[in-house]
Design a protein around this nucleic acid. Structure first.
Length: 292
DNA sequence: GACCAGGTGTCGT
DNA sequence: ACGACACATGGT
């Protein structure tokens, strides 16, 4: 049995409830969290391991014993300061009932502040795959190639490790044709240890262009990496879910993805990516079939 | 067995 | 610029 610290409470401006917490941790932005039998969540972000669970006082958390406290990193990762809550209020929900409905459905939903490398690797796996399969690929990459950061927990492998990885090992991670993309991107970024800092200095549009130059990164993956890995809340990824819900909600039948991306950024504004996450959650919740 | 999945790259017009 | 198709793998 693992040794964990005592539960502590993370003070948050707006504490997410159980359903919203599930959507934050298992809603297709990070792929490294798992729900335990007791309802708590166990996950890895960067080189940190944590468990989370809702509590009356706020969000409870703990970490493996024997490490410096991750309280500050966890607070940043979860936006405990509530920066996004203010950005959400600035969305055009007052004049957009469709958006307002999605916002009301997941109070406290937020974008996790993932590291650029983590977001890029995960979304390189994401193309043409279901979320559960992406989670398996990412877990396999950590298991096969990642450094152990606590007993039974491994970080994601760095680009150098991925670049030199045996193709057989990558194949065993269930990556399919994405293995080539990942290795080609890894070989490029291995030579650019400061890539995230350099790209982070760019305006969002330039950042998207640079990201899309990497093998296996197109407009959608680039938008996800900008949003989830670089904290660009205006970035607006358009995937099958968003395409469908925008066409439905705003009568945009026939619009292509690039046009929908421009629509989203224009309509929702500076926090379009946040709006996107609410719409994504609403779309998925709507399509979930009642179990019978 | 067919169809689809938080798409991308390539090759036609 | 736009549309059609292949791509590996597994099943919310």
């Amino acid at each position: 049995m693992r040794n964990w610290s005592e539960w502590q409470v993370l003070r948050m401006a707006d504490t997410p409830g159980e359903a919203t917490l599930a959507e934050i941790l298992d809603g297709g932005q990070s792929f490294r969290w798992q729900r335990n039998d007791d309802g708590a969540w166990t996950g890895v972000f960067g080189c940190h391991v944590a468990q989370l669970r809702p509590s009356p006082e706020g969000l409870a958390w703990r970490q493996p014993l024997g490490k410096p406290t991750i309280a500050k990193d966890l607070g940043l990762y979860l936006d405990a300061a509530g920066t996004q809550a203010r950005a959400i209020d600035a969305l055009p929900w007052r004049s957009d009932p469709f958006l307002a409905s999605a916002l009301a459905r997941f109070p406290g939903l937020r974008i996790l502040a993932q590291q650029p490398d983590e977001a890029l690797l995960a979304f390189l796996c994401s193309s043409n795959k279901q979320i559960i399969q992406i989670r398996r690929m990412v877990a396999a990459l950590a298991d096969q190639l990642g450094e152990e950061i606590a007993p039974d927990f491994r970080a994601l492998p760095g680009w150098a490790k991925l670049a030199q990885a045996d193709p057989v090992t990558l194949k065993a991670c269930g990556l399919g044709y994405r293995a080539t993309f990942i290795q080609e991107t890894a070989r490029e970024l291995e030579r650019r240890p400061n890539w995230a800092k350099e790209l982070g200095a760019l305006e969002t549009d330039a950042l998207l262009v640079e990201l899309a130059k990497l093998p296996g990164v197109g407009p959608k993956v680039a938008a996800c990496v900008a949003l989830f890995g670089f904290g660009r809340l205006e970035s607006f990824p358009v995937d099958t879910w968003i395409e469908q819900i925008l066409v439905e909600g705003y009568a945009l039948k026939g619009w292509k993805r690039l046009a929908l991306e421009r629509f989203g950024r224009a309509h929702y504004g500076a926090a379009a990516g946040l709006a996107q996450q609410f719409l994504f959650a609403a779309a998925r919740a709507q399509s979930k079939k009642p179990k019978g």
